[in-house]
Amino acid sequence: MAKYIGKRLLYMLISLWLIITATFFFMRIAPGNPFTSEKQLPPEIEANLNAHYGLDKPWYAQYGDYLLKVVKWDFGPSFKYKSQTVNDLISEGFPVSFILGMEAILLAVAFGLILGIIAALKHNKWQDYTAMIIAVAGISVPSFIMATFLQYFLAIKMGIFPVARFETFMHTILPALALASTPMAFIARLTRSSMLEVMSNDYIKTAKAKGLSQGVITVKHAIRNALLPVVTYMGPLTAGILTGSFVIERIFGIPGLGAHFVTSITNRDYTVIMGVTVFYSIILLASILLVDIAYGIIDPRIKLAGGKKGE
């Protein structure tokens, strides 16, 4: 186990290093320097600015500084908003995104499980077909389209929910629903197929034979084992919720990190783009690692052989 975690950590660090290096060199080859958009600067001032941001050093020194700063959790200043650093943006926007994301994950897991379990218990009946059509639709409708539909029909036309902003609990419902729709559909499909597989196992037959009711069998024996593939999906789920938040926050005018990220893309605010990308990558890789470790703990049948699967 320790060896496995060590190996995974190593891969994670290599991937992270790759991202940081890529972002650094991308930042250098990106067209224009951070001060081009301003009025023509006198050369002395530009030299001063370059010195202030460390841009006068050779590239390897800048690269070293950058790596060191990331290790110290400092993503540098924003070039567009002089008074703000990337760290400010993260500490300001991330809590909002985190609340929204958590709500979406809860929604996705709860409804996905319910749909999937109903579909499996009523296999090949209308409930099954309805649930699976909902699931295929959920996978096919991109989250940003779901968001605009929800916003238009439920908020603008019917006025049940507030249209935008992020103030009360009511404000969070529509964006969380939109974010949750695709992962919910994935979870429903996963749960259904793993439930069907589990239900055909011998120990379920034994449980039936000893006279347990359908409800007890489902809750006590089937669901617990059927949940395992859903746990593996939690890594990609985090990724989906994270990237989904870029557009959802923009549509609903939520001041989260995703919205800041999209704004920085429109503004070509390179340091913010790079900093937030690195920050997101760290969160993503860490959550995927956590999920994999949790999986090994939950299911003792899995031997964590350190990526030797399929050999």
């Binding site: 994670m12 991937s15 890529a22 990724a239």
Partner: peptide, 21 residues
């Protein structure tokens, strides 16, 4: 492939689009 796979897909695409135009 494993290392490259660890790089978040959409983030990399966004980064490339910003840089390459």
């Amino acid at each position: 492939a494993d290392v490259l796979y660890g790089v978040p897909y959409l983030l990399l695409v966004i980064l490339l689009m910003v840089v390459l135009g």
